[in-house]
Each structure stands twice: as C-alpha cells, then as structure tokens.
Write a protein that binds this DNA or RNA. Sequence first.
RNA 1: CGGGAUGUAGCGCAGUUGGCUAGCGCGCUGCGUUCGGGACGCAGAGGUCGGGCGUUCGAGUCGCCUCAUCCCGACCA
Length: 491
Amino acid sequence: MAKEVNSREDNYSQWYNDLVVKANLAENSAVRGCMVIKPYGYAIWEKMKAELDRRFKETGHENAYFPLLIPKSFLCKEAEHVKGFAKECAVVTHYRLKVDENDQVVVDPDAKLEEELVIRPTSETIIWNTYRNWIKSYRDLPLLCNQWANVVRWEMRTRLFLRTAEFLWQEGHTAHATSAEAVAEARRMIHVYADFARNIMAMPVVIGLKSEKERFAGALDTYCIEAMMQDGRALQAGTSHFLGQNFAKAFDVKFANREGGLDYVWATSWGVSTRLMGALVMAHGDDNGLVLPPKLAPIHVVMVPIFKTDEEHDSVISVMNDIKDKLLRSGLSVKIDDRDNLRSGFKFAEWELKGVPVRVAIGPRDLKNGTAEVFRRDTMTKESLPVDGLVDHVVALMDEIQKNIYEKALAFRNKNIHIVNTWDEFKEKIEEGGFLLCHWDGTTETEEKIQAETKATIRCIPLDSFVMEEEGKCVYSGRPSKRRVIFARAY
RNA sequence: CGGGAUGUAGCGCAGUUGGCUAGCGCGCUGCGUUCGGGACGCAGAGGUCGGGCGUUCGAGUCGCCUCAUCCCGACCA
C-alpha cells in the first residue's frame, strides 16, 4: 500500500523533510525559527554555492570575511538602513557568564558591554567601515568582494528555508569610482543570479526593479529576480542593490580621483540565501516529493538491486559496480542502494521523495536479458534498456531532465501570468494566484492601498521579460501610467 | 504584539462524567518467512502526559499562571 504523501496544496513541509528541520533547541528557549540543514539538504546548498562562487570569480570578485558582531553605532550611521533593520536585530549586551552564590549560571552584570553589539542582519555597515581603510585612490577601485556568511534577522514569523531567524547566504559588496560603473555592476550581478536560477536551478525568473516601497533599506535602486511557486505565489529569489554614495557618506569613504579631487565612493551590494533551497523545492516538487534538477542533485543516479538469493545479489551488484564506475568517470554521482532489509518498492519511493533524477534497477530478469530498468524522476516513467550503451543514455538523460524541468516550470509560470486592466479583474485574478501585469500610477500610496485590499504587492517593474512600456491607466487609481508592473502575492 | 488553536514515546494521534499498571499506528531492536512498486508473523525496547502552583482520598483529565508550537493579522529575503 502506498504511503500517504501530502498534496501540493497541503504543505510543503513534507518535501522539506529530507533537507531541513526546525532546530530543536533547549526547552523553553525563546530562540525560534532556526533550522538544522540535514546532510542531504546541505549537499544541495554546497552545489549551489559552488556554481555561484564560480560565477562570482568569473566576474572578477574575491571572497573575504568580516565579523559577525557589529557595533550598534555602525548600524545607526545610515539612517534608512537602520530604520529597515532595527526591528529585527539580535543584540549582544554582555561578554561573560558567572556562577552565582546559588550555584546558578547567570549573566555577569559586571560584564556589560559599553556599546551593544548587533549580530549582523547584513554586513554593509561593518564592511564599509573597513573599506574606508582600503580605498584611498581611484587605483584601488573597483573593489569587488563577496562574503559567504550566516546572518540573523529576528522575524516575527518564520518558515523553513523561506524565512528563518538565522540563514546562510552570500553578500557581495563592491565599491566603484563612478555611479555608472556601480549601476552596471548591480545590473551585471542580477543577471548572474538570473542565469544561475534559470540554468542551474531550472527555475524561470523575471528580472526587474523594485518599487520604492520594496526597496532595500539604504539603496537607491534594488534589482531583483522574481520566481513563481507552484501555488501561484511569488518568491523573491535574489536582489542586487545600487547603493549610490549612501554608505560611503555614512562611513566617510572617499578616494582621490584622476583629477586630484576627493569623491565619495559608489557602492553596490547583492545577495542570495538558503531561501533558494525553498524556491527549489516549491518550484519543482510534485506529489511524490522533491524533483531536483540534475545540476544540483547530490546524487544523480541511484541504483537499486533486485534479488532473492545471495548469488543473484552478487551478480547484480557486480554488474552495477561496472556501470557505476563508468557513470562516475562521466562525472555523475552514483549511489548503489544495497540495504538488504528493505524491499525494492520501498527504496523506489524513498529515492523519489528525495528527488534523485534517475534510478537504475537491475534484477535477475535483466541479468538474463542484458538489460536494466531506467526510471526518470521528472516524468515518473521507466523503460527497459540494454546495458550496452546505458551509460551514454543516462548521461544524455541528465541534460534532457534539466531542460524538461525548466520547461515545465516555464510553461506553468507563463500560464499563470495575466494581463489585467480593470480593478474588478484584478481582485478576481489575484485569488487564482500568479502574476498580474497591470498599470500602476507609480505612487507608494496606491501600492499600499492595493496591498491592504488584496495582499498583493508589486513584485517588480520588469526589465528583461514581460516589459510592456505603453500608455495606460493605473488599475487602481485610473491615473496615467507608462508601463505595466507585476503584482502578486508573495512569500 | 493582537485574534484563534494545540502541547501525551523519535513521528502522527486516542484517552469518556477526574479512578487503579497511560494506549494505538508508524518507526526502532531481535528471530523467521518474504523480496520486479511503500511486505508479513512472533517477541521486545521506548513516557517524570510542555513546566509550575492549586483543587481533590485520587489529576493526562478540573482551575490559575507560565513556556513553547502552529494558523490568521502586522513585519520581512
């Protein structure tokens, strides 16, 4: 009998189970919403990191590391920035514990910090405080650094991968001599993210610009990539900010230009996080569990032996080892599931739940016929193939699956993008989920009213696809508009 | 922080108007039979019922307090 698997509408958490769990901290602990990423989940994250890191290096960036703890005063130097993050900061106030007269371990009141330290919610401030010492001349620019780190944002409500109190991410921080160069950098990096999402995660995204309301605290412009999950909600998958001279002014970072004058440095920052793991799950998962794109799958091929006797087992395993060696040499990662206490049907279901792209099953019947059963996770189909040529077939399958997963997600997204012209239509369509392309008068006031009435927000002003620059009337206020923007309910 | 709900074995749950030794399914351990789509039998292990105080001869059950979790708001990547 098949084990019950939650339907898509039900809850994504079932699919997460192999990847991540809520941290089981001490009883009565107020720390909420931290996650433990399991080895299988972390393996996917490491593959993401490797792909992203390679792209960062290719675009001239270097990795560095800055402190976890930020003096409160640093955070306060950029007014907009601190306004945006103040409400969600974890603060360190003491540096020592002690054992009191009752043998209880307590915070030592004598060890109160003169100035509180904030656990980084993002690192602009501490990095720009450091950059002041690194940048003296135009010859020091551009400065292109990236940091892989964890950050803490004390959110009211958390959700595994999408909004945890602590999450892993990368944050790029660059410094430039001119505004144009910084803008080009911010735009370049959002394209790096889009390329990663599309070609590695097999997830379609729209590149766009955030409205003023959704902009990063302290940025002049925020570029983003927006993806659509299978329930029709939008997920911001990555952001890249043009920070202008805001942080340079806040931290007094000036450089001597070619003419001998002093200018403030122009900045960008950009980041993606373990939220991408959530995106991966929700973009591709189906009722049988995860569906991993081959380029991120920790295991490309799982081999399940089918046997009754020890002799059958040994000969099946020997054929499998041979195939495994060849697959490994082709660059695929392979696992032979040799557990003897589980039936094959159970193993099938389990590896499907984990989203392994291809399964190869071999039993006595195959041994006789020189065949193997090849199953692909994305289509849930299987075929019997001769062992000769199997390796080439499986290697080719990886590209096919990668492509198919993307196209499936793309078809879904395009089916759920609607052009909307009237407010009644808007209210009706937003209930169905998906992206709504409509005119907007450009004011925060209208945006807020629309959000209050429908929970929908402007996901972005599209820049690379669904760009619709045309005269029109705001769907809400009726005032003139020059282009359509994307509204959706978001995670 | 407002509104609602829930805390009983690793997970999911039952537990009646308070009653004696706290149950069930999955999982786990051992043995045997099975093995081409989530097997079955038998025998086991596993709980201070979220925590505290109270009512009572007696509390998983009733009351108060507290902590945590989940859902809906506000906030957010």
